[in-house]
Design a protein around this nucleic acid. Sequence first.
DNA 1: ATATAAAATTAGTCATGTCTAATTTCTATT
DNA 2: AATAGAAATTAGACATGACTAATTTTATAT
Lengths: 222, 222
Amino acid sequence: MTRTLSEENYLKAIFHLSRNSKEKVSITTLAAALENTAASVISMLKKLTAKELVDYDKKKGASLTTVGEKAAIDIVRKHRLWEVLLAEKLEFSWEEIHDIAEQLEHVHHPELADRLDKFLGFPQFDPHGHPIPDIKGNISKIFGTLLSESAVGVELEVVGVKDSSSMFLNYLKKLDIKIGSKLKVEQIIDFDQSAVIKINNGGDISVSRKFLESILITSTGN
Amino acid sequence: MTRTLSEENYLKAIFHLSRNSKEKVSITTLAAALENTAASVISMLKKLTAKELVDYDKKKGASLTTVGEKAAIDIVRKHRLWEVLLAEKLEFSWEEIHDIAEQLEHVHHPELADRLDKFLGFPQFDPHGHPIPDIKGNISKIFGTLLSESAVGVELEVVGVKDSSSMFLNYLKKLDIKIGSKLKVEQIIDFDQSAVIKINNGGDISVSRKFLESILITSTGN
DNA sequence: ATATAAAATTAGTCATGTCTAATTTCTATT
DNA sequence: AATAGAAATTAGACATGACTAATTTTATAT
């Protein structure tokens, strides 16, 4: 029951997409996420259905079976643990670790994740603020809320990002935003839902709605 | 110029085989090492020749170009560095690390090997006693000599193995032989070149010629 | 020198996982 | 209910990297 690289990437994509929207995933959505064609997606879903990793209903779309979900969580666990190692031990930066972890997550060994977990001191979150599934596959609820949900004028602290692309992370780097940074929403522009925010009590800057929806924060209680 | 998994495995195999025998490598030898057919080897050698990673002469066999050798050394460097991490940090045992490192060696990132090297404290040898190529690709001469070359009655210390297969390493584990173990060749049997050896000043045991040729030792000067 | 065995090569097949180009099936709107 | 547009599906092609089954070349022993 060894899984190919492609199979693992499909499982992971279905997992993330159905977690976001909480629904079954359509062919078109999957195709966009994986940057494949709809035809390719269909043929792979047939294969995964035959392997009983995926349930596919032409009306409602694809979802993971119990076995498929376990496999997906295992990959996500490895991805996030490797990210911690890359960032904390090998001193890679926020925007470099994702692409390396995309490769490392496919390394197979029954004990690898657990050994990593132990070596790293059982971290709860990866460097992007995402929860690391535990040895049993339990995933703690995401920590923090979206910056887009925050009230104006409240002191906030960055606890994670929803987008791990190096494009976004490089942008954050340029803005000097990292986990722990202080933010405050100064005003929301009705016209396009963009906002003016203050970073680390410094200058104001204008950001898009998409930006606000990509950052996880907690209120620091002020 | 990204290399596929298969390409990398061919480069590595040619590197190891031509290092052992110091000669160009034949199709048959490569096929045996990679557990592929001769036909498959030929078609891959054509591809690698077209990419200028390999020189292939039908009379003399295959060898690596300068670029090909650099690529091979890079893979070997990553393999051995990962083995150190797996053994020293993640507490995997001698016989487990090779197979995991076979996967990890194919993870690509321009700085990964150097970051690992630094984190691990610039190790000179991997857990099997093999030299780790440095950042420039220089490989220190192999440390130790073959147990098969040792004189009878001399106190010896294990510094490495030539065979990293889990089959051999499990055998060593059963015999309680690891790096640093004391050995002494008690006698050589003329008939089949097997030997009686003493392990850690304990009981005598009989081993084959093949065994003697798979262990690297130094004399402890007694 | 020639027969035989080993090694190398060629030709053609196959599985995997993509793709494009139709074609069919849904879905939403009028 | 008819229909336009979106989504899903099918059919067929292709690259990769394996394979088997001949066939040719090379090396070796008599």
